[in-house]
Nucleic acid binder design. Sequence first.
DNA 1: CAGACATGGCTAACGTCGTTAGCCATGCCT
DNA 2: AGGCATGGCTAACGACGTTAGCCATGTCTG
Lengths: 174, 174
Amino acid sequence: MTDDRLTPRAREIAAVARELLEESGPAALTMRTLADRLGIKAPSLYKHFPDKQAVEVELTARMLAESAEALEAAEARAPGSLEAVAGAYRAYALAHPHLYCLATERPLPRAQLPAGLEDRAALPLLRACAGDLDLARAVWAFAHGMVILEIHGRFPGDADLGAAWKRGLKALHP
Amino acid sequence: MTDDRLTPRAREIAAVARELLEESGPAALTMRTLADRLGIKAPSLYKHFPDKQAVEVELTARMLAESAEALEAAEARAPGSLEAVAGAYRAYALAHPHLYCLATERPLPRAQLPAGLEDRAALPLLRACAGDLDLARAVWAFAHGMVILEIHGRFPGDADLGAAWKRGLKALHP
DNA sequence: CAGACATGGCTAACGTCGTTAGCCATGCCT
DNA sequence: AGGCATGGCTAACGACGTTAGCCATGTCTG
C-alpha cells in the first residue's frame, strides 16, 4: 500500500535527512552528519540508498506529495478558488523553504519518482484554472517565482509581497 | 570609470570563470579547474579573490549588468512595451542559463554589489509597468518563474511555453 | 643606484566531502 | 547445522575549498 519503493529503514533515514535539511539548510545535509544523527557511520547509509542524490530524490518526492495534499485540502475547503490554492502553495513553500528549494531548483528526477506524483501535484492548480493549461502554467510560474524570490530575499526588504500576490492573482484570474 | 572594484587580473579570472560556468555548468566551476584554464595553480587565485564566493559574486554582478543592458536595449527599441522587455528577459536568461541560475538562486549579495546595480536591473520592468510597483513585482515573479522552471526542465516536454508566456503577459498587462 | 615593498606566482598540507572495498555480527529459513 | 540476507563497521581514495609560507619579479623611493 504505502510506499513500497523504500524499506522501513530507508524511510527512517529519509525522515532524519528531512529534519536535518529543514532545521539547518542544505549545507548541513551531509552523509556524515546524517549518519551521526542516526547513530551510525556514513558508509552504512549506502546499504539503504545508492548515493546522496537518491536521498534527495526521496525528499523531493515527499515535498511533492505533501504540497499536493496541502493544495487538495485548500481545494476542498474552497472549491474552485484560485486564491485558496495559491494561498496554500505560498504557505506550504514558506513553511518549508529548504525542502521547497531542494525539490524545485534542479531538474525533476521523473524516472525515480512515484508514478503520477508529478501530475497529482499539478492538478489542483489546473482545476482552479478550469482546465486552461496555458493559464495554469502562467499561474504556476507566478506562484513559484513569488515564493522562490521571497525565500532568497530577492525583493527589497520593504516590498509589500501580499499586495504583489493579490495584484498578480487578480490579473491572472479575473 | 569602468569597474575599479577589481584589478585587471581579477577581471581576467572572472572572465575565464564565466566561460567555464557557461560551457560546463556549476559543478565544473572549481578553483582548481579555474586555475588550470588560467595556467596557474589554485592557491594563486586567492591573491585576487578572497574566496570562491567572491568570484561568484562578480559573475552575479556581470549577469545583472548584462541583463540590465539587454532590457534597456529592448526598451529603446520598443518604448513602453512590456512584451518587448519580457521577451528580452526570457531571451537573455535562456541564452545564459547557468549564469542566470548562479546569479538568481541564492540571496542577493547586496553588500558586495556595485551601488545602484540592483535598481538598474529592476527599472526597465518597472517602467514598462508604468511605475506600478506591485504589478512590476508580479510580472518579475512570473518571468523569473517561467524562465527558471524552463531551465530546469520542470514543464512537461510537450508544453507550449510561448503560449503560456503570451497568456501570462496578456493577463498581467491588458 | 640600492634597497624596500607590492605583486603574483609556487609547494605542501589540512579538513571535509561523497564514495568504495572489504570485513563481521546477527538472525532467519531450510 | 549451515547458508544467506541484513546492516553495521574501519580504512581509504580522490576531489574540493582553503591556509601557510616561500620565492621571483619589477617598481618606486631614499
